[in-house]
């Protein structure tokens, strides 16, 4: 078995590297664009005007309440119908991942903001700051301390979630397995190699997130 694995790594290391590249790229796109959407949703959900808040809640609940695989299928077929040009599979899959991650990130951001002590807002307002200035100078910088580690963890989660995108052969790590399996009919060994790579990625990144989390405390 080890022999076979060694052979596979030697023969296909370029493919594995590409897989790592695409997996990280997909997760990165999902988290960065998902953060943009998530921020927007979080602001909407906290809005005083209720219909806006309901809209955000509906979005969040629907995306968190249905399977990601279903969403991938949906957008895989939906996006080409909406766009005036023929998008690549990568674009369709990314759209689903971004929209899905946005729902989760919005809750991360909202929770991060609401975890900041209410006294901080009161102190800022008592000095004469308006609500936007209070958010910008006092609340959000403190919320960031809660949000950043959670975003890092979301990135780690997305690395694993993107494996579902291999359903559409988008070149991620899981696609590597399917390519090799299809070419030479070996199942177990490529699966284990891909599993090890996933684990190295997620384990080291979670450790990094935990390290950064400890570093961004204020009392230094």
């Amino acid at each position: 078995m080890l022999e076979t694995m060694g052979m596979l790594v030697q023969r296909y290391y370029g493919l594995f590297l590409d897989g790592v590249k695409y997996t990280l790229l997909l997760a990165l796109i999902a988290v960065t664009l998902g953060t943009v959407i998530g921020t927007l949703l979080a602001i909407m959900k906290m809005a005083k005007f209720k219909p806006i808040s309901w809209l955000a809640t509906a979005y969040i609940e629907i995306f968190r309440g249905t399977p990601l695989l279903l969403q991938l299928y949906l957008f895989y077929f939906l996006v080409p119908q909406i766009l005036p040009f023929e998008p690549s599979k990568f674009v369709c899959v990314s759209t689903a991942l971004v929209l899905n991650t946005g729902a989760y990130v919005s809750e991360i951001i909202r929770a991060g903001i609401q975890a900041v002590d209410k006294g901080q807002t009161e102190a800022a307002r008592s000095l004469g700051l308006n609500s936007v200035q209070t958010m910008r100078k006092v609340v959000f910088p403190q919320a960031l301390k809660n949000i950043l580690p959670a975003l890092g963890n979301e990135f780690v989660t997305d690395i694993k979630e993107t494996s579902l995108a291999s359903t559409f052969f988008v070149g991620d790590l899981m696609t590597c397995y399917r390519t090799i399996n299809g070419a030479i009919y070996i199942t177990l060994e490529p699966l284990i190699i891909v599993g090890i790579i996933y684990f190295i990625l997620t384990f080291s990144l979670s450790k990094l997130v935990a390290f950064i989390e400890r570093r961004i405390q204020y009392d230094h």
Binding site: G119, A123, P141, Q142, Y218
Partner: peptide, 10 residues
């Protein structure tokens, strides 16, 4: 001035 100080830790 508040009971819990509410100084800005950031």
């Amino acid at each position: 001035v508040f009971q819990n100080f509410n100084v800005f830790p950031n």
